[in-house]
Design a protein around this nucleic acid. Structure first.
Lengths: 165, 165
DNA sequence: CTTGGAAAGTCAACAAGACTGACATAAGCT
DNA sequence: AGCTTATGTCAGTCTTGTTGACTTTCCAAG
């Protein structure tokens, strides 16, 4: 590869390019959460409830401990959210079969309905973005996101992927 | 394009693929903010201060009103952050020249130093991710993020890009 | 040229959601 | 029996968002 070619390919690593990527990430994340946030604003729930519902749906029967690692919050913080979801009949907490200390979490029918409502809105935006950018761009998008995660979270993410498929 | 080809190219729009993208976005954003958050944890500042400093640096002399649109918060919310930054001598607020209602915001030397410290950490992760994924993936990454933003934010983002280059 | 409304910024009070620390209970393990 | 683990809870704090009320400044219609 000659110098010009090198220059072309390293342009994406200049400070200015990196700053633009940082800003793009910030603005895109705002868009990413905007639709579910709007839906939840009417109810007594917030983004924290959305995240809990999302991951309970994805990792059916997950334990509280596993969920709080996924979400990256303390048990006290998760507990507040989880308690209201259980009280409101959106989430069911069953005592563990093999280990009775554990609680396995499931969405009730009402919980699944809300999950679907939130998920539909978020997926719609994601779908539009994917469609606008095209398959090759999406592959690149996913590659960069993977590389940006902490290694531990990358493992968690891969585990969810395998379970979901 | 035959049916098989169609199937291949539309695979990235299945619900499962979209859900994986949503999760990837969530986990990656955590990584994205982790390093600056760690730095700020020691000081009396948080993520809100980081964002304000970032955009004041990028849009030198910006008004409070412009900044709060960029950040997507209310002026009251921004004001608290801004006040501490000004009190601590990281940001300078100058009364507008043409319109005395406005305040033009600038980083002081100390402000620039902190900006550099935070920015270096965040760019290092971004650079590692970009390098790992390669130029083509980065182009795709940027395309999808652009498409995911609200149109108004996309315009703001483009304006910053032009000013920064 | 005055006056009324709009715009920019500030102050105060409140809410959501994160945190730490301490403690209780139940269950599993050595 | 005693230690550890998983979960839940209470209390208090912090950050960061919100709304409402207010001041200062600007602009434009009468």
């Amino acid at each position: 590869m000659n110098d010009v070619g090198m220059g072309e390919n390293l342009l994406f690593l200049t400070d200015e390019q990196l700053r633009q990527g940082i800003e793009a990430m910030f603005f895109a994340y705002r868009g990413f959460t905007a639709d579910p946030d709007r839906i939840l604003a009417g109810m007594a729930y917030g983004r924290a409830h959305h995240r809990a519902i999302h991951f309970i749906n994805r990792a059916l029967g997950t334990t509280v401990n596993n969920l709080l690692i996924l979400l990256g919050v303390t048990k006290q913080s998760l507990n507040r959210v989880l308690r209201t979801l259980i009280e409101d009949g959106l989430v069911e907490s069953r005592v563990g079969v093999t280990d009775k200390r554990e609680r396995n979490l499931y969405l009730t029918e009402a919980g699944e309905a809300l999950e679907r409502q939130l998920s539909d809105a978020q997926r719609a935006r994601m779908r539009a973005a994917y469609r606008a950018a095209g398959p090759q761009a999406v592959a690149g998008f996913r590659q960069v996101l993977e590389a940006m995660m902490d290694p531990e979270m990358r493992r968690k993410h891969h585990a969810l992927r395998e379970a979901g498929q």
